[in-house]
């Protein structure tokens, strides 16, 4: 991106709000993903709204009820619902494929996608993996699954739960490895270099492990629960929501954030609800509980206003793979696309 120009007028923040293409989704939105150059806004219930850069919107029905989780690899979006179904929406945003149905119609709570095409999901205390060739395996956890993530290398699944994370190799007989830490772990991510694992806990804190030696990293001090985590380009920092600034934990060194202070950027009088790092440059977008969206440069904290404050929190934020489009939506479905 060559157009990140906050200007030198310190008194008023640079703004690109007039360049945003408004998109009226007309339903509550919980996440947004890019399928090619079209933004797919996942509704809280039943459908996905596909929006192209010229503002054309089409709706696709995906679930008969609430949509509880969604993940995308850019080729498809896989979603789990309270109808007990796991479905995939194809790259064209047209065709919906049923991947699995829970026999007891339990909620599908979590989803993760592997670059090779494998998909993982969970219902209650059971995690499932279906490999690229269609073979399916399941694993029972001691408590309800809070989050799923595939390691960047190999077929290895991290399953977050109460009192820790289980690392499971679905294709190996070896017993799963358990990383213990007291408390309820709800979200989980691997660092892109596969050296660290970080969970978002039920209490307002992150917990991390260095995978080589299982050393613990406690990342605390948040006023609210961390619901959004995003790795900066190259995995140098983990940007997180949960405070009235974006908290960025440094992961560039071999010790990760151990013994280091996080960077705190883009402070506002509102809680950060979503963060999304640019895929290639040291820039992130942050959405706030009052509806504000800022683009921020990691190196100096310079800010550009993307969306003015309103009332409803920002619920969805995503870049396309090239980093040329930013899509966002507030909880009520008031959405937009910004081309850079």
């Amino acid at each position: 991106m060559t157009e990140f120009d906050p200007g030198d007028n310190a008194a008023s923040i640079a703004s690109v709000t007039d360049r945003v293409l408004p998109v009226a989704i007309g339903m509550p939105v919980t996440s947004v993903h890019f399928l090619g150059e079209r933004a797919a806004f996942v509704g809280a219930e039943e459908s996905v709204a596909m929006a192209s850069a010229d503002g054309e919107i089409s709706r696709v029905a995906v679930h008969a009820g609430g949509i509880l989780c969604a993940a995308s690899d850019g080729e498809r979006i896989v979603m789990g619902g309270d109808d007990g179904k796991l479905v995939a929406l194809d790259a064209a945003g047209e065709e919906v494929t049923l991947l699995a149905t829970d026999p007891k119609r339990r909620w599908i709570d979590n989803i993760a996608l592997h670059p090779d095409g494998a998909v993982a999901w969970s219902a209650g205390k059971t995690a499932f993996v279906r490999g690229a060739k269609g073979e399916e395996k399941s694993f029972d956890l001691p408590s309800t699954v809070g989050g799923l993530a595939f390691a960047p290398k190999g077929l290895r699944l991290a399953v977050a739960h109460y009192n820790g994370v289980t690392l499971w190799f679905p294709n190996m007989v070896a017993t799963a490895e358990v990383l213990e830490w007291a408390g309820s772990h709800l979200g989980v991510v691997f660092s892109p270099d596969n050296k660290f694992l970080v969970t978002a806990m039920h209490e307002p804190a992150l917990h991390g492990w260095r995978l080589a030696d299982h050393r613990h990293m406690r990342m605390t001090g948040y006023p609210g629960r961390v619901r959004s985590m995003s790795w900066s380009a190259g995995g140098k920092a983990l940007a997180t929501s949960g405070a009235d600034t974006v908290i960025l934990w440094p992961f560039a060194s071999k010790d990760g954030p151990m013994g280091k202070e996080p960077a705190m950027l883009a402070p506002l009088q509102a809680r950060v609800s979503m963060v999304a790092c640019h895929p290639k440059q040291d820039i992130f977008a942050a959405g706030y509980s009052d509806g504000t969206i800022l683009m921020v440069r990691l190196t100096d904290g310079a800010e550009i206003l993307v969306r003015k404050p309103g009332v409803v929190p920002v619920a969805a934020l995503a870049w396309n793979a090239k980093g040329t489009l930013l899509a966002f939506a507030a909880e009520d479905g008031d959405a937009g696309l910004l081309a850079l």
């Binding site: 919980t30 809280a44 219930e45 009820g65 609430g66 949509i67 509880l68 309800t144 039920h202």
Partner: peptide, 13 residues
Amino acid sequence: GDLVRILDGLMKR
């Protein structure tokens, strides 16, 4: 813990 998760999911509806 399960109630936290269920209420969160229910709020989508």
